[in-house]
Every structure is written in C-alpha cells, then in structure tokens.
C-alpha cells in the first residue's frame, strides 16, 4: 500500500481513537472537570504547530544547500499548516482561559510569545508574496530558519520569565494521571497524522500547480 493511502486510512482511525480516549477513557481532572478536556487538542495542536515549523526550518536549510524547488515548496506548505494549528491554539486557549482563569486574554509570557510566533509566520507569507520570483525562495528560506528560533522561546517562556504567568510549567505533563497521559498522546498522534495527510495533499496540489505554470509559460512563449 502506498504511504499516502496508508496515511489517509490511518488518520480518521486515529482521530476517532483520540476522541474516544478524550471523552470516554481519560478521567476528569478534579478542579476544572469537563473544561480540562480542551487540554488534549489545545496542547497537541501547539506541539503539531511546533513540528510543522521545525519541518519548515529543516526544508529551508535543505533548500539553501541544494537549491531544489521541492524543498522550498514543502517548507511553505508546512508553515501554512503550522499557522493553521497555531490558530487553533490561539482560539481554543482563550475559551479555556475564560472558563478557568476568568479572562479571555492575558499578556503573560506564553500567550504573548505564541501570538508573536503566529504573527512571525504571517510575515513569512507576506514576504513570499511580495518578493520577485527569483529571490523569493532564498529570502523565505532564511526567514523560515530565523522564525523557528521563536519556537523554543514559546516552549520555555514560562521558565524564562517567571513573572507569575497563568500557564503551568512545562513539567506539568509528567504529573498527569496515566489515563490523561495516554489520551493526550493519542490526541497528539492524531493531530500529527492530520498534519501529515494535509501536508501530503497540499504538496501534491502545489507541485502540480508549479509544473502546470512551467508548462503554461513554455506553451505561451512558443
């Protein structure tokens, strides 16, 4: 079975397993009760976004080394998906915060750095659309590498700026109950598979579009 087909078959199964483990298997957290279940998709989306941005960074380096258009294409599409997952984080977060902290938004380190991360990748796409074709890939690759530096800052923001922020420290996950830990891992796997499936699909379309554009240019020039 080709990898793509396997991916498209496994992803819905994993998503179903994640929903079941979140709502049917994981126990309720004592203080927040049902609302805590936002955690499974909120944190998993954040980790998936980090993965997507890491792929962008790696492919950007690969492009600068090998100058192969395919790497630039993967980098751009991965950043696009990273932005999608980052948007999920930034919208589910305030909903959870309103219920647990009684506020929609707070300019604490984790929230602010995540917003900056999101805006940085918006800038990545603005750059891609505003620079001429010859230089676009090169500039975008450099930007893709530099933008990734934000990811560890977001992850360790709670540790770096210990100013009484509302987010718990990064070690919280290791104190979770076993059933919660399992549900979180399944959710993370499901979202990573969704990311991989959508990336595969998007790269396919974009590669076809790239080849079509080349063909059109050649046809019209003749």
């Amino acid at each position: 079975m080709p990898v793509a087909t396997a991916l498209y078959v496994v992803t819905p199964i994993a998503l179903f397993a994640a929903l079941y483990s979140v709502f049917g298997y994981a126990e309720y957290e004592g203080t927040m009760l049902e609302v805590q279940k936002i955690f499974y998709f909120h944190v998993s989306s954040a980790f998936t976004a980090f993965t997507a941005f890491a792929v962008t960074c790696i492919c950007s380096i690969a492009y600068l080394v090998k100058r192969c258009v395919k790497y630039d294409l993967v980098a751009a599409k991965s950043a696009e998906l990273g932005l999608v997952f980052c948007t999920i984080v930034l919208t589910t977060g305030p909903i959870w915060a309103r219920s647990s902290w009684n506020t929609w938004w707070n300019w604490e380190p984790r929230l602010t750095s995540t917003l900056i991360l999101c805006l940085t990748y918006v800038g990545y796409f603005i750059l891609r659309t505003s620079v001429s074709t010859e230089q676009k890939e090169r500039f975008a690759s450099v930007f893709g590498i530099v933008a990734f530096l934000n990811v560890p800052i977001v992850y360790y923001s709670v540790k770096i700026w210990q100013t009484g922020g509302l987010h718990p420290p990064t070690t919280t996950r290791s104190h979770l109950a076993e059933s919660m830990k399992h549900a979180w891992l399944v959710s993370w796997l499901a979202l990573t598979l969704i990311y991989a499936s959508l990336l595969k699909l998007n790269i396919g379309f974009s590669w076809a579009q790239y080849r079509l554009n080349k063909l059109q240019a050649r046809t019209y020039s003749n």
Binding site: E34, I38, I88, I95, L198
Partner: peptide
C-alpha cells in the same frame, strides 16, 4: 456543568471549523 460544557463544545467546534475551512481551501 452546563457552563463548563458550553466552553468545551465551543473549543472543539473551533478546532473542527478551522480544519474544515482549511480542507475547503484545499
């Protein structure tokens, strides 16, 4: 409970909506 469920449903609805909009874009 009804208040907590309201937030929970809203959050999962948003996750769903964003992913569906992206698939629509594709």
């Amino acid at each position: 409970q009804s208040r907590r469920l309201k937030y929970l449903i809203s959050a999962y609805f948003v996750v769903w909506l964003i992913l569906m909009l992206y698939i629509f874009h594709l």
